[in-house]
């Protein structure tokens, strides 16, 4: 029999159980960050491709969500900090090796742009509420003229943001569940997919809906592929990674992971979207909402389960 225990020190209330220091706000933050990344990416891409008139939901309606998501995400992150007074310390330095650092910087840049983006559509979005000050109207004009420039900036920024939500976790060598190179692309894909789902939800015409359903379908297929790749990678990995994988495929997170993320969050919406594309009538809100929920649960599972996985003890 092998027995390993803490004789003293670690088995005290404030240490071992609470070493899981990341709580729900981090999952929410990652989810909202990914969602905003997806939305901004599509808005920017469509604009760059000069298809903005054809796809109003993507560039206009859905992009209202991104500044809100980013703001809430930042608030969630801030909420989970335990030494909040020193928050400003994030912006006194740039630490290339720290995903948290460049994430903070990307957010610092992308959040105002997302606000400006929405503002550039202000008159179109809120025709009834006239701007009171002249200079604001001038400013909106200015933004409209520079929309293309914003879009060009947003494409790389949103990709970085999307990848960042995954890399934030995968950079942690110490947590075997997180420590794989696929998490970045996987979270990016998932973010794009939730973005697409939001656009589907808000799209008013079938053409736009169908385009994004097709995009989403492709993203789901990629995402499933990446998840399989990730699990295979862990399966072939070291013992600690194998144990980490067990949490997802045969442990306490299996139901959440397979039930809510893979089946309800990916496979079912894919089938529904496909059915709709073929021409059957499906309430489009259903797959979209399932994808959003699936995306959120996925973050929860990865954040919670990842923290349990360890090298020692």
């Amino acid at each position: 029999m092998q027995e390993e225990l803490f004789t003293s020190g670690r088995n005290i209330p404030n240490i071992d159980p609470s070493l899981q220091i990341w709580h729900w706000p981090i999952s929410v933050y990652l989810f909202l960050g990914g969602l905003a990344a997806g939305l901004l990416f599509f808005a920017a891409l469509i604009t760059v491709l000069k298809k903005d008139k054809e796809y109003p939901a993507a560039v206009k309606f859905a992009s209202i969500v991104s500044p809100i998501a980013l703001t809430l995400g930042l608030l969630a992150l801030f909420y989970d900090l335990t030494h909040k007074l020193y928050f400003w310390r994030l912006y006194t330095t740039i630490r290339i090796e720290s995903p948290m650092s460049w994430g903070a910087w990307v957010l610092l840049i992308i959040t105002p742009i997302s606000f400006l983006w929405v503002f550039s559509y202000y008159t179109e979005l809120f025709p009834k509420w006239k701007l009171k000050f002249n200079f604001l109207n001038t400013f909106e004009k200015f933004l409209q003229e520079n929309r293309m420039n914003m879009a060009i900036a947003l494409i790389p920024l949103s990709i970085v943001l999307g990848i960042y939500t995954g890399i934030l976790l995968s950079a942690f060598n110490a947590r075997p569940l997180w420590n794989n190179a696929i998490l970045g692309p996987l979270f990016l894909t998932s973010g794009l997919s939730t973005g697409a789902a939001t656009i589907i939800l808000l799209a008013k015409n079938t053409k736009e809906r169908h385009l994004f359903s097709k995009i989403d379908l492709a993203l789901i297929v990629i995402e499933l592929g990446l998840i399989i790749h990730m699990l295979m990678g862990m399966y072939a990995g070291s013992e600690v990674q194998l144990e980490a994988m067990q949490l997802l495929v045969g442990g306490e997170f299996t139901l959440m992971f397979f039930g809510f993320v893979i089946i309800l969050g990916l496979i079912v919406p894919a089938i529904l979207e496909l059915t709709e594309l073929i021409g059957y009538k499906v309430p489009v809100a259903v797959p979209a909402i399932l994808i959003l929920i699936g995306g959120l649960v996925f973050r929860f599972v990865m954040v919670e389960a990842g923290q349990i996985t360890r090298y020692l003890y």
């Binding site: 070493l19 335990t82 310390r89 942690f172 360890r310």
Partner: peptide, 21 residues
């Protein structure tokens, strides 16, 4: 201490669980 924001990234990064809040 007065540069730390309490983000917990370092706690997650340590394979030895050597840090605490």
């Amino acid at each position: 201490a007065d540069e730390c924001i309490g983000c917990g990234a370092c706690i997650e990064s340590c394979p030895y669980d050597a840090r605490y809040q």
